[in-house]
Design a protein around this nucleic acid. Structure first.
Lengths: 203, 203
DNA sequence: CGAGTGATTGACTTAGATCAATGACCGTGG
DNA sequence: CCACGGTCATTGATCTAAGTCAATCACTCG
């Protein structure tokens, strides 16, 4: 996902940062596409407004995420983007990106590979959401995120962040963690969860 | 998503169909990648097995879907694939696809655009799953799937299929539909849902 | 004509959302 | 240097929407 991984430095040099206040629009449906975006800080929400005037959220990107990748291949944006908090976004002009692709086949390939991985990851997260039980959902996550030792999961953020990623309330997650720890299935320490013997079936 | 849309006929001609019995493996983690797959019929499940021997489902693809796109850029599969029902899959050999990409820049671009759209769609579905209420979840879906007239949603399958897509039990969905119809927010007819005046706020 | 599946609705149960409160930390501005 | 406001971590009590179990009816397909 990090732009660094696939976009040549020459193209990255053309990026422009833009500061947005909460509620400030970045682009609207139908606007000519200017490029793809990366959220540097804050959050940006992509929405679509239906005929009755109601707004429906397509998704909300947080720091580090990119969005509007599809706009590279489309002349106009297909939705609105609005900062939901004060935010800084980085625009990679379409021309710079497409030029890089034309000149450097490696770049397209890397970008495409990145997207393919994203698709994979998103499908996995969607599958996770099909699991109703908080405990099993958490186990699914843990099973797929153990480190090289096969038993340590390093949290990428706060427990609240994890709750959001899992689609649970933070309270539910705290309780589930507490229950698993009480049952001896996991052990917790600062920013880490260590799996232990016999955590039983997955799925 | 349909392969037809981005892969030139020449490459498509190299595809090979393979029949699988329920439970039959298609490939295993670490196998050399042979190409990307399309599910012709049945379902195929991608799983990963953790050190404790438990299997975790990454995702399950149904008829019409493609999977293992990322394998085009990787020498070995990163998970197992097993038919969860009797199934027919179509393999597009890696070499055929990559050749097509090399010879026809349009093809890479089309593929990349397809992936970008998939990412968009998946993010939207994930956002949808963040909505807890069955009613609002349904509304979110309806709002994003109205036809050109702005009020008709054509179901792509049975109501049960829709329930699965929404991540609800079919019973819950039936009840929600019934409630919305009773409230006059929608009207149903064979394979269609028509929105009516004043369905209130989204999100 | 059964068997299998979708559509639908009822009754009941429960897991997780909600509301609330507390303590630990952290940065910061006076 | 410390008090204060804000956020995270955690746990309790309560409530309800959605899951689960179950039954019925309408179809469709050999």
């Amino acid at each position: 996902m990090p732009v660094k991984d696939w976009l040549p430095a020459a193209a990255r040099a053309k990026a422009v940062d833009r500061k947005l206040k909460a509620g400030e629009p970045l682009f609207h449906l139908g606007d000519k596409t200017s490029g793809l975006y990366e959220v540097v800080s804050g959050r940006v929400r992509m929405t679509r407004v239906d005929r009755t005037g109601h707004e429906t959220v397509l998704y909300e990107s947080g720091a580090g995420e990119t969005f509007a990748e599809a706009s590279l291949f489309s002349p106009a944006y297909h939705c609105d983007a609005i900062a939901s908090t004060d935010a800084v976004v980085r625009v990679y002009p379409k021309s710079a990106v497409l030029d890089a692709f034309a000149k450097d086949p490696k770049a397209v390939q890397a970008f495409t590979a990145t997207l393919a991985h994203q698709v994979m990851g998103l499908r996995t997260r969607l599958e996770q959401r099909n699991i109703r039980s908080a405990r099993e959902r958490l186990r699914h996550y843990l099973a797929l995120n153990v480190g090289a030792d096969g038993r340590t999961v390093t949290l990428r953020g706060t427990v609240k962040d994890l709750a959001a990623e899992l689609g649970l309330t933070h309270e539910a997650l705290y309780r589930t963690l507490a229950a698993l720890e009480r049952a001896g299935a996991i052990r917790r320490s600062k920013g880490k969860i260590v799996l232990r013997r016999g955590q039983g079936r997955s799925i």
